[in-house]
Computed example of a mutant assay.
Amino acid sequence: MPFNSLAPQLSRLGPGLVLGITATGVAFAIHAVFPAVPAMTLAVALGLLSANIPGTAVLTAGRARPGLDFAGKHLMRAGIVLLGLKVSIGDVLDLGWLALLLITAVVLLSFAGTYGLARLLRLPGETALLIATGFSICGASAIGAMAAVRRIKHQDTVLPVALVTLCGTLAIGVLPLLMHPLNLSPEQFGAWTGASVHDVGQVVATAQTAGASALAIAVVVKLTRVVLLAPVAATAGLHQRFLDVRERAIGDADGSAESDGRFPPIVPLFVLGFLALVAVRSLGWASPVTLEIAAAVQDILLATALFGLGSAVRIRTLIHTGGRAVLVALGSWMLIASLGLGAALIMIR
């Protein structure tokens, strides 16, 4: 890109990106002092604060907004691509076919149950779809992928991301308290955590309270859910393609069609990038140092993206418009926790 074209872009996006990266640094610094609190949760919380404190609200709504929106959309997608380097198909297959079927059932049932509850409470279809995707698969990353496939506006992802992040944080405090009353072994607790907590970082924070054996199985079970992001996104993309074809046919029939003849991709390029990096990890082509660096970069990208999304949430608006969505989120959280517990007890006897 020529410099005379790049300079205006940097001027427009720079303030928001600098603010987001600075806030990410603060989030990681707090996480280093209080390891039990995930950096991703802190990033969302700092975004919420920046949008609702008079001193910073003007900045996040004004000059910094273009850069924050860019982070929430494009840095999120870059983070999803790098997420693929955490997934090894060999580790997933080592769980066994029963475990794979149970994890898939948890994802599908929690997705269907959440979507049904959301529609019952009359949430818009797009909001219902995003909440169902985020809670059943892998949190904010899944919401970003689904929004891209279904061409959902960036601003419509803000509330679902905030809800899935906050409910995942709730799990960090609640699930460890239930381990002993439910008489779970560390392995059973780890499987439960991996099957029911949303974000990978939240899974680690929750499972590590029960020791190394719980953490090991929790991460593998969680990443098995992450693998399902690709087929779910592809299915949603096929459905969107069908809707586009039908709409275009109706438009051609009545002469109202306005189209350049092109369709959006069934699977976005960044989801294909995610699959490519899953293959790289599974084939052993990435060195341990590369994986470590990629994991750190991914954390920075996602935290900056989550700050950008959180900075678009106005508490006053959330109170007026988000009550039903909060009920759906809590219902979904309890549903997936129940399904995940049942799956863990069957997987590990």
Rank of each mutant, 00 (worst) to 15 (best):
G14D: 00
V280N: 01
R119P: 03
D94Q: 14
S256Y: 12
L10I: 09
N52C: 05
V158I: 15
V289N: 13
L109Y: 01
A171K: 03
A140P: 01
G194K: 00
V232A: 13
L130E: 00
V81M: 03
A142Q: 01
L109F: 08
L243I: 11
A64M: 03
T304D: 01
D69L: 12
N52F: 07
I217D: 10
R77F: 09
G134I: 09
A236E: 09
A43E: 05
A57S: 15
M146W: 06
A337G: 13
A57L: 08
F135T: 12
I217V: 15
I348V: 12
G144I: 05
L302A: 06
R150Y: 06
T321M: 11
A23V: 08
R314P: 08
G144A: 04
L345T: 08
L301N: 01
I131N: 02
G190R: 00
I21P: 05
R281W: 02
I266S: 07
M40P: 07
G331T: 00
L102A: 03
G14F: 11
L100S: 02
V221C: 12
A233F: 09
K222D: 03
V278R: 00
P186G: 05
A132T: 01
L159R: 12
Q9K: 11
V278N: 00
Q240P: 06
I266H: 10
H180Y: 12
T224Y: 08
L19S: 06
A257D: 11
L163R: 00
Q208E: 13
A253Y: 11
Q208S: 10
T235M: 14
A61Y: 10
N52A: 06
L68I: 06
S5H: 14
G116E: 09
I137E: 02
V58A: 15
T169D: 13
K222M: 08
I315Y: 14
L184P: 03
L175Y: 14
T157A: 05
I152T: 12
E258Y: 15
L120E: 08
K222V: 01
L19W: 00
S338D: 05
M179C: 12
G201Q: 05
T224A: 15
T235Q: 10
L46A: 04
S332N: 05
A147H: 06
L215T: 14
L83W: 01
R77N: 09
I89Q: 00
T127I: 11
P288Y: 02
E258L: 14
E247H: 15
T317P: 07
I30S: 04
F274C: 02
G173F: 15
T321Q: 14
L130D: 01
A112V: 11
P231C: 09
L228P: 01
H239T: 13
G255P: 04
S11N: 11
L275G: 00
F270P: 00
E292P: 06
L49D: 08
D299N: 13
S5K: 15
P2Y: 11
T56C: 10
G67C: 04
S282K: 03
S282C: 09
L123E: 00
